[in-house]
């Protein structure tokens, strides 16, 4: 069952120098229970896509085209009031990048979660506090810690508390933006275990945004690769790693070291991602692509379905012969 469908979404930021085309014609579908990893270099538009879906774009950001269907309703057209009341927190919520540092230092963490619950649902405080304790248990923190202040929690616990908060009103769908980027390896493993548990226990649909392919390999069932505002490939996680179709996907995998493989020379991707004020014409990856052809700087490649559930946008895939 489709829970989220993003159709040809354009999200631009207006600046003095013109529009930053942070998300441009993105097409994406997520099924219920899917765990999607959204991967790409910094600045490619991952957070912008999440903010557009959550309707949390900053003042200079706007949806310049396309639709975002949540359970078959286009949420782009909804008025703010309905969206606030019925969607954000309840149907979907967002653990934003760096969230663990955003807890209010003067309030106990349990009270902050309870507050989120009482704002969005018609429940009394004691019940909300009990829910907060349950949520702590769910993310693997001792419920007694709900009476702690943020500074009394370690970084890993704060991150889990933020995940607990996102779950406060039982959403079906959550987006976690770089949930483990600032964490050390053992704490990262603890957090990833919690994410996997939640997916299993609650049947939660999750989008995990990260620049780290290994995090995706560990927690996701599908993977979308984003480059310079475009989705360039989407497939189930095994296909992405074993049969990547797009040269960018291949290059990313080649750049990523694994502790399980013998010492080898790591290969970086030449050049830098483009400025999204003036992205290259044709395929946006063409200036850095090892397989570039004439057509690549002229025509934008279609985002094709190669097989059921495997999409990619690259001229190599349609080349004659």
């Amino acid at each position: 069952m489709t829970i989220l469908e993003v159709q040809d979404l354009k999200t631009y930021y207006s600046t003095l120098m013109g529009d930053v085309k942070a998300v441009d014609d993105v097409r994406l579908r997520m099924d219920k229970g899917e765990a999607l990893g959204l991967v790409g270099e910094s600045g490619c538009g991952k957070t912008t896509l999440a903010l557009a879906i959550m309707r949390l774009l900053p003042w200079n950001g706007r949806i310049a085209g396309g639709k975002i269907m949540l359970n078959d309703i286009d949420i782009v057209g909804l008025d703010d009031k309905t969206f606030d009341k019925e969607y954000r927190w309840k149907k979907m919520s967002y653990v934003f990048q760096g969230a663990m540092n955003a807890l209010n230092p003067v309030f106990k963490v349990g009270a902050q979660i309870a507050e989120a619950i009482t704002i969005h649902e018609d429940v009394e405080n004691p019940e909300a506090m009990e829910r907060a304790r349950e949520l702590f248990r769910l993310v693997g923190i001792d419920p007694e810690r709900t009476t702690s202040f943020p500074h009394e929690l370690s970084g890993g616990m704060k991150q889990r508390a933020m995940i607990a908060m996102a779950l406060a009103c039982n959403p079906d769908f959550i987006i976690a933006d770089e949930p483990t980027t600032a964490l050390d390896v053992i704490v990262q493993a603890q957090t990833l275990e919690v994410m996997r548990e939640l997916q299993k226990k609650l049947g939660l649909t999750t989008m995990i945004i990260t620049h780290d392919l290994s995090v995706v390999a560990q927690t996701c069932s599908t993977c979308a690769i984003m480059y310079a505002g475009n989705l360039v490939e989407y497939a189930d996680i095994n296909t992405i790693f074993s049969e990547p179709a797009h040269p960018y996907t291949k290059a990313l995998i080649g750049a990523f070291p694994s502790i399980k493989e013998d010492r080898r020379e790591l290969v970086s991707i030449a050049g830098v991602p483009p400025n999204l004020l003036h992205p290259p014409t044709g395929c946006r990856f063409n200036p850095r692509c090892p397989n570039r052809m004439d057509i690549c700087s002229k025509e934008k490649p279609d985002y094709l379905e190669l097989e059921d559930g495997h999409n990619a946008a690259c001229h190599l895939l349609t080349k004659e012969g």
Partner: peptide, 15 residues
């Protein structure tokens, strides 16, 4: 054991 491997076929990282 905690280091995640960029390969879905591998055993998951564990704490």
């Amino acid at each position: 054991k905690a280091v995640p491997v960029p390969d879905p076929e591998y055993e998951k990282a564990r704490a």
